[in-house]
């Protein structure tokens, strides 16, 4: 189970990094989204996976599920979501101001000013 999730994390991160290195802002945003999925799954792994661990400290329960990574992931998701929304708005603004959706703010070969 952990191995499967680890492979998924690696795959997501690899795809995210590839997209991050693309020249258009849209693929960069998708890349960041994939990367943040990978990160969220990784934090989740930090708390160990288990389907049968007791969620609450009931009397006599052993091997409790760790609730902290879930809180951490929730924070990370909220922050990541807000950041992505801001980046989309910024990308639209930059497209309107510079007339290009290239990450450099100008088409390749074109003079910046």
């Amino acid at each position: 189970m952990a191995l499967l999730v680890s492979i998924a994390v690696g795959l997501l991160a690899a795809c995210g990094i590839y997209l991050l290195l693309r020249p258009r802002v849209f693929s960069v945003i998708l890349g960041l989204t994939l990367l943040s999925y990978a990160v969220n799954a990784l934090i989740f792994l930090g708390g160990r996976l288990g389907a049968t661990a007791a969620p609450l400290a009931l009397p006599g329960a052993r091997g409790l599920a760790d609730p902290l990574p879930q809180a951490l992931v929730l924070t990370a998701i909220v922050i990541g979501f807000g950041m992505t929304a801001y980046l989309v708005a910024l990308a639209l603004r930059a497209r309107a101001e510079t007339g290009s959706d290239h990450v450099d703010g100008a088409e390749p070969g074109e003079d910046r000013r």
Partner: peptide, 10 residues
């Protein structure tokens, strides 16, 4: 600023 902003944010 828009040009600088994209790189900075990403």
């Amino acid at each position: 600023r828009a040009r600088a902003g994209i790189g900075y944010v990403v």
